[in-house]
């Protein structure tokens, strides 16, 4: 192929890429769009077999979740009839989500950073050690579900925010450690040597030289940890019961014995998305840099 023909192919390729991108975008965003639309649809029209696109929007669903309302759950089992009262307390769930996500993020970074530093700088336990530690993150979370529930039950961590935080940390710490470690390895060892010669201790070098130089990675990791913790459903559902339920699990309560409250699920989901979108938009600069720089190792 001569040079001229190469130019033509470049042109054609661009066109194909656009098509692929648009399709991918459509497929990805459609559920979000649908949820948004559903949240404004009156209940009757939601369950209509043929999707209705034109309708009179209503704020009922939003009102019902933002304003306290009682929901009854029927736990009757044959001979016994127990009716528990479960309130969909939006604000309690929101607070739980925030507390859990923020605590997880901060704790993960505080614990993972010095760990990453040690793994990067000290080779005493061998190069493979860090790989084994960090590969925990690669395991499917579901295999930890039962062991954790049992352990938590024994130690009284069931239905506690602390329990959920600890469960999330088992994944967030290795993840944070992995990314931060490769960033620390990128920092020239000479800089630390210079700081030692200038009179600083190992810990001071880590905080005053290494940490400032990894700021963007730290930000990126914290954003990802936050989003992960906020969105997590499985563990939240299993560990929490009443007190510690975060938003994701709370929304699951709308799947009742009387029918699925689609409208409220949609409304709650829309509200739940907002913080992650905000965090993501603000942090997207850091996110791309953080993810790609760590990956090219």
């Amino acid at each position: 192929m001569s040079e001229r023909k190469i130019e033509d192919i470049r042109h054609k390729r661009k066109w194909h890429i656009w098509l692929v991108l648009i399709v991918a975008l459509a497929v990805t965003l459609f559920p979000v769009f649908w949820t948004l639309v559903t949240s404004f649809k009156p209940s009757t029209e939601i369950t209509n077999p043929t999707p209705i696109w034109i309708f009179k929007p209503t704020l009922d669903h939003y009102k019902s979740i933002l304003i306290k309302e009682k929901e009854t759950q029927d736990f009757s089992t044959g001979s016994q009839s127990i009716v528990g009262i479960q309130t969909f307390d939006f604000y309690k769930y929101l607070v739980n989500s925030l507390v859990i996500a923020i605590s997880t993020t901060v704790l993960a970074m505080v614990i993972a950073y010095p760990a990453a530093y040690s793994l990067a700088r000290y080779r005493t336990l061998g190069d493979n050690y860090s790989f084994w530690v960090l590969s925990i993150r690669m395991l499917p979370p579901i295999i930890f579900l039962i062991p954790i529930s049992i352990l938590f039950a024994i130690y009284g961590l069931s239905d506690s925010r602390l329990g959920i935080i600890i469960a999330y940390l088992t994944f967030n710490i290795p993840f944070a450690c992995w990314i931060i470690k490769s960033f620390i390895e990128d920092i020239p060892a000479d800089l630390e040597k210079a700081a030692y010669m200038d009179g600083y201790s190992r810990f001071q070098v880590m905080t005053r030289i290494v940490f400032p130089l990894t700021r963007s990675a730290v930000a990126a990791v914290m954003i990802i940890c936050f989003i992960f913790s906020w969105n997590e459903f499985l563990f939240a559902m299993v560990i929490s019961f009443i007190r510690s339920t975060p938003l994701t699990a709370g929304v699951g309560l709308f799947v009742t014995g009387y029918g699925i409250r689609w409208g409220r699920i949609a409304a709650a989901a829309v509200i739940a998305i907002i913080p992650t979108v905000v965090v993501g938009l603000i942090g997207q600069r850091y996110l791309v840099r953080g993810l790609t720089m760590g990956a090219v190792k």
Binding site: P188, D190, L191, K193, A194, A195, Y196, M197, D198, G199, Y200, S201, I209
Partner: peptide
């Protein structure tokens, strides 16, 4: 190193 009170200049300059 921080106790030895020596000053070092590096090939890579090692500026912060």
């Amino acid at each position: 190193p921080q106790e030895r009170d020596f000053a070092m200049v590096f090939e890579s300059y090692a500026l912060y």
